[in-house]
Design a protein around this nucleic acid. Structure first.
Length: 663
RNA sequence: GCCUGGGUAGCUCAGUCGGUAGAGCAACGCAUUCGUAAUGCGUAGGUCAGGAGUUCGAAUCUCCUCCCAGGCUCCA
């Protein structure tokens, strides 16, 4: 029997007997690997372990504790779920069920229009575990289009996919089926076969570390014009520990939820009387917000911005000229109609107003770049189902600026702006970034191709100069121009789109904005839209979650709380507080009407950076007992001068009392 | 907007078969004065999200509306 050689991931080659499968290869490397293996990557293509190897192929054995491995587990678990659902709901139609980040889902259409309820998750879970216990195989087969149509004759969604493939198919459909004229399927049992490209684990017994998480409605093929299917989401991992770690991560995210913390820390609320997506900021939330805004204003002033103010409503004419009524009327609050039929709209953005300020008199090239900044409150009629806490609201305040510059200044201004953004975000403790370039949305955009190309090229060039990774978001730009957005990673690894910088050739044209160039011609300026926080509300939400409510000292509404041990220490406590307040430290006193332990607990729950306790010793010696947030060891006998110095350094450095866990 | 699940005291929640609304925490009062994450006793607190219906009787059953959560779609 002649051997064949395959190349392993470490670059070495290995000889195996002709006709060997990927599993045989794994076994030849080691029994442990053969036991662990779930699939193989052959020439960069994920395949089943039963795949027969050919001479010269590059082969990597895929084990569960890898990205590929988890995808295979998740995808296989989705199939098990589909089988469970068809067992429990005979006649159910199953649509698609891919692996996704951290898990999987599968879409179904239940008989007689039935819906899943939360209680059904437990039933499906139990059935899935039964299937896993049966140790069914995942047996791959390939069929012609006609054979496949016959096998899936009772499954309309599968038929639709097969027919789409027969017509040439979309990439997504081809991915479901194997990608060429043959249709591949996986059979688990005589009663369950699914259309699938694979690969899958060899047997269902390899699965089991999963949890079904939620039921949801989802449109067939993601199109809201299509019927809505019933989706079940689950998470699946290679081991019990990995599953537990993931569930713990979810709990951590929940504990940090800004909606929960915002309520607990008395920062803001959303009374139902006002309506969805409209927040009230309470004194403490308002104070954080004021600090954010004042710091931002100060930085903008130094950076050459000028401050403007504009009204919240405008006649329709403004938004007709800007193009927003043409493109985005459905996302604007409906107009207020006056007696003389004049229509007024709440502003969904600030840019048209800033253009009018620009246009209020003739401009010279000597004035450019002109940078107009405003904390502008805008209102957008978001669909009721999408509003969420402070991150997706109907009324928000953007830290919005528009830079008017010449074409020659454009690249320089963009680079300057992105560096300014990153610098400001770092001051708030965000340190990990990448950039995303959003290009022309073909269905919804205006302007000439050449302009878009130039704009996109300029943004790409500027991005590369900044030295951060650049990802492409095809078609994600605004209707008037492409944008670069700064994506920031938070303390638990989630990424958030923060700042956006957009190039706009259209608005200056729509409003006929010009400047007088050195050669005395009237020339069109370029407009750069940019918001660094995005919205103040959303930025606050992200900071709250990033810090799990433990904001750096400079941002805390209350920085120090002073507690006397007994009533007769209260006077000294007030003296200490007065001293700190005189130095601009936000300080309060809670008198000794409750036991010390209880008052400390309350202050700790409020996440106040420093709880200062003063008793006899301190009164006598003029010292303090300091409890830093995040520490369980009180420091006794600290002098007021030392404490003040430490506070001042920390506030200047935008630091926290505790050592941040994410560094 | 669509799907699923929710809304009971300021908060977290219980409330059985349709039969006069419950607890803990918080608040308030009194007592307590204590050196590091919950002192004791007491008081008050409710149109059970809102509206309509069924019923002798509705937190509980039906319908409508509002709001919230998780998804889908959307996100200038």
């Amino acid at each position: 029997m002649s051997d064949l050689n395959v190349e392993l991931p470490d670059g070495s080659t290995r000889a195996v007997a002709a006709g060997s499968t990927a599993l045989d290869l794994a076994a030849s490397i080691g029994p442990r690997l053969a036991k662990d293996a779930v699939a193989a990557r052959v020439n960069d293509h994920l395949s089943d372990l039963t795949t027969t190897l050919r001479d010269g192929e590059r082969v990597a054995i895929v084990t569960p504790a890898s990205e590929d491995g988890r995808d295979v587990l998740r995808h296989s678990t989705a199939h098990v779920m589909a089988q469970a659902v068809t067992r429990l709901w005979p006649g159910a139609h199953y649509a698609i069920g891919p692996a996704i980040k951290d898990g999987f889902y599968y879409d179904f259409e239940l008989p007689d229009g039935a819906h899943f309820s939360d209680d059904d998750l437990a039933k499906v879970d139990a059935e899935m575990r039964a299937i896993i216990a049966e140790d069914q195989p995942f047996a791959r087969s390939e069929y012609s289009i006609d054979e496949a149509l016959s096998i899936f004759k009772d499954q309309p969604f599968k038929i639709e996919i097969i027919e789409a493939v027969a017509r040439g198919g979309s990439a997504a459909d081809l991915a479901e089926t194997g990608g060429d004229s043959l249709i591949s399927t996986y059979t688990n049992s005589p009663t369950f076969v699914d259309l699938c490209r694979g690969p899958h684990v060899p047997r269902t017994s390899r699965l089991g570390h999963f949890q079904l998480t939620r039921v949801a409605g989802a449109y067939w093929r993601g199109d809201e014009k299509n019927p809505q299917l019933q989706r079940i989401y689950g998470t699946a991992w290679e081991s019990k520990d990995a599953l537990a770690a993931h569930l713990h991560q979810l709990e951590e995210a929940e504990a940090r939820d800004h909606r929960k913390l915002g309520h607990e820390l008395d920062l803001f609320s959303f009374p139902s009387e006002i309506g969805p997506g409209l927040a009230l900021f309470h004194p403490r939330g308002g104070l954080i917000r004021r600090i954010l805004e004042e710091y931002s204003r100060q930085r903008h002033e130094v950076s050459g911005y000028e401050f403007v103010n504009t009204p919240h409503i405008s006649k329709a004419e403004l938004f007709q000229t800007s193009g927003h009524l043409t493109w985005y009327a459905e996302s604007m609050y409906p107009p207020m109609v006056l007696d003389d039929d004049q229509r007024y709209y709440l502003k969904p953005m600030n840019c048209p107003f800033h253009v009018l300020i620009y246009k209020s008199r003739p401009r010279s090239y000597r004035e450019l770049p002109l940078r107009l900044f405003e904390f502008g409150s805008v209102y957008r009629y978001e669909l009721s189902g999408v509003v969420q806490g402070l991150t997706r609201v109907r009324g928000m305040t953007q830290d919005d600026a528009h830079i008017f510059c010449t074409r020659e200044q454009m690249a320089g201004e963009l680079e300057r702006t992105i560096n300014f953004v990153l610098d400001l975000l770092r001051d708030f403790g965000l340190n990990e970034f990448y950039l995303e370039l959003s290009t022309r949305p073909l269905a919804k955009s205006v302007g000439e191709d050449a302009e878009w190309e130039e704009a996109e090229a300029t943004l790409t060039e500027v991005a590369s100069k900044v030295g951060l990774d650049l990802e492409l978001d095809v078609g994600g730009g605004a209707f008037y121009g492409p944008k670069i957005s700064v994506q920031a990673r938070d303390a638990i690894g989630r990424t958030h789109q923060l700042s956006t910088v957009q190039l706009d050739f259209q608005q200056p044209k729509n409003f006929d904005a010009t400047y007088v160039a050195p050669d005395n011609t009237r020339t069109r300026p370029i407009m750069i839209h940019r918001a660094l926080f995005g919205s103040v509300e959303r930025f606050m939400a992200i900071l709250i979650e990033h810090y799990a409510g433990n904001l750096p000292t400079w941002l805390c509404p209350e920085q120090v709380r002073v507690l006397g041990v007994r009533n007769d220490h209260d006077d000294y406590a007030y003296d200490v507080a007065a001293l700190l307040k005189a130095q601009g430290v936000r300080t309060s006193v809670e008198e000794a009407t409750e036991p010390l332990g209880s008052r400390i607990r309350k202050a700790k729950l409020e996440k106040i950076p420093y709880v200062v306790v003063v008793g006899n010793e301190d009164v006598e010696q003029g010292t303090l007992g300091i409890n830093a947030r995040g520490s369980n060891d009180p420091e006794r006998g600290v002098t007021i001068g030392t404490f003040l110095e430490r506070l001042r350094d920390e506030i200047t450095a935008h630091a926290s009392p505790e050592v941040p866990a994410w560094r």
